[in-house]
């Protein structure tokens, strides 16, 4: 018997955004997985070129909603380094706290999706509740649930709400209290271990890693929020002065952490405008692992694997 080929996507392809896959299957086992990305391409770099960095910041925040703060921060840091803009230490601590909050929400999102794929509805509900608590708190503190348009070169795009900022540690406490039950439902429950570790151990081990990162991130976020201090120290971007090197040309790199890994932006400024930009999103290497990890799996186990990898075509296609 020869192998069969099976096409998936680009619409409704494994809930990772638009992507096209061609599976070569032997019986029900995947022998090979070919990937065609690019359906989510918007031309972000092309749109950013020639823009004022403040206007380009709105655009790079929308490269991937799962790493919105990370992209905004990486871009802002690159621009700040290239134009010698100084950011107050308190503001920098707050920006790092925001990337930690984003990572908490995204890890919870992926855990929820993995739970739903595996039919673990109790765990999915717990993860969704905790994620919602983070997003509501972020909306109150930073004006947007996903913290879009929150960071700008030079500091923050707008002043955070003091009451919202003061409420963040209580949300971190709520997460810390809710985490053990989620951990038990995903890692210790025998049915969960069987479903998550059935075809390949990858989903289970990734859930464990995400839970560990959430625990670690809670501590980091708490420390950074304390370090950030009072929001009066934050300088809104509108008040930032013109870049020191406005007339010249400068190139710099900025990095930030997202739930999937490190995001980095290389930017070249000419006369204060973005002349060139390169964006690295860590989801692209994650896509390239898919073929290797999917080999030998049954076709119906593929959605769970994709959910556990946290794949998205937004960050890969840009």
């Amino acid at each position: 018997m020869g192998a069969f080929q099976l096409g998936i996507g680009p619409v409704q392809a494994l809930a990772c955004g638009p992507a096209q896959l061609r599976l070569t299957v032997d019986g029900e086992r995947i022998r090979r997985l070919e990937l065609l990305l690019g359906h989510a391409h918007r031309g972000v770099v092309g749109l950013a070129r020639g823009r004022d960095p403040q206007a380009a910041a709105v655009l790079v925040g929308r490269i991937d909603a799962r790493a919105a703060v990370a992209h905004q921060c990486a871009f802002a840091r690159a621009v700040e380094a290239a134009s010698a803009l100084a950011v107050p230490p308190g503001t920098e601590a707050l920006r790092r706290a925001m990337t930690e909050l984003e990572q908490l929400a995204v890890h919870l999102h992926h855990l929820g999706r993995v739970s739903r794929c595996a039919g673990l509805h109790g765990a999915a509900g717990r993860a969704a509740l905790l994620r919602e608590a983070v997003l509501v708190a972020c909306a109150e503190a930073f004006g947007h649930r996903l913290m879009l348009d929150a960071v700008a070169p030079g500091g923050l795009a707008r002043l955070p709400d003091p009451a919202g900022l003061a409420a963040l540690p209580a949300v971190l406490d709520r997460l810390r209290n809710g985490l053990p039950a989620l951990r038990r439902a995903l890692l210790d429950d025998p049915a969960a271990v069987r479903r998550l570790g059935g075809g390949t151990p990858e989903p289970w081990t990734r859930c464990r890693t995400r839970l560990e990162r959430i625990g670690h991130g809670l501590g980091l976020a708490r420390g950074l929020l304390a370090e950030a201090g009072e929001p009066v120290a934050i300088r809104p971007a509108s008040a930032s002065t013109a870049p020191a090197k406005e007339t010249g040309t400068a190139e710099e790199i900025g990095t930030a952490e997202s739930a999937g890994g490190t995001v980095w932006h290389w930017v070249r400024l000419e006369a204060g405008l973005v002349a060139a930009l390169h964006v690295h999103d860590p989801v692209l290497p994650a896509w390239s692992m898919l073929d290797e990890l999917a080999r030998g799996l049954a076709v119906e186990e593929l959605p769970l694997l994709c959910a556990s990898l946290g794949l998205s075509s937004s960050g890969a296609d840009q």
Binding site: G17, G112, L146, S314
Partner: peptide, 18 residues
């Protein structure tokens, strides 16, 4: 889900989750 940042997809998925 088309291109874009996927933020709409996240928010629609939140409705599915609860």
């Amino acid at each position: 889900q088309g291109g874009g940042c996927g933020g709409c997809g996240l928010e629609i998925e939140a409705l599915l989750a609860d």
